[in-house]
Amino acid sequence: MSSSRSNNRTWMIPGLGIALLVAIFLSPFASSNPDGLDRVSQDHKFVNKALKDTPAKKLPFYHLFNEYTLRGTPKPLATPLAGLAGTLVTFGLAWGVGKLVVRGQQSLPKDG
């Protein structure tokens, strides 16, 4: 396990790569049928209880993304680009949270 440190990093590339491929290339093929709760709220007539002017629409990000579409881009690219951006932001944020929270022993040569 002498190269355990580099091993621990190299698996990340396929891992993040798969996530990005899914977000970019599969997202346009996502089913547009209403999903679970959505369908139930339509069938049982409480869909209109959802606020239209939600707090999230008052955030600056609403000028950038309209749901999973990047504003100002051609329709076929809007969702893949939103997926790309969202996946990278999520990756960075979760990494950052981990980095801040995990106390870690940096000078440990072999990690168990």
Partner: peptide
């Protein structure tokens, strides 16, 4: 996490979050 996790977990947190975000975009019929 602060008390019991090691630094090697941090990259996996990033990748796991990225994959779940991406996969949540894909609605299956």
């Amino acid at each position: 996490v602060n008390a019991g996790y090691q630094e090697r977990t941090v990259p996996l947190m990033g990748v796991c979050a990225a994959f779940i975000f991406a996969a949540q975009m894909i609605n299956f019929p």
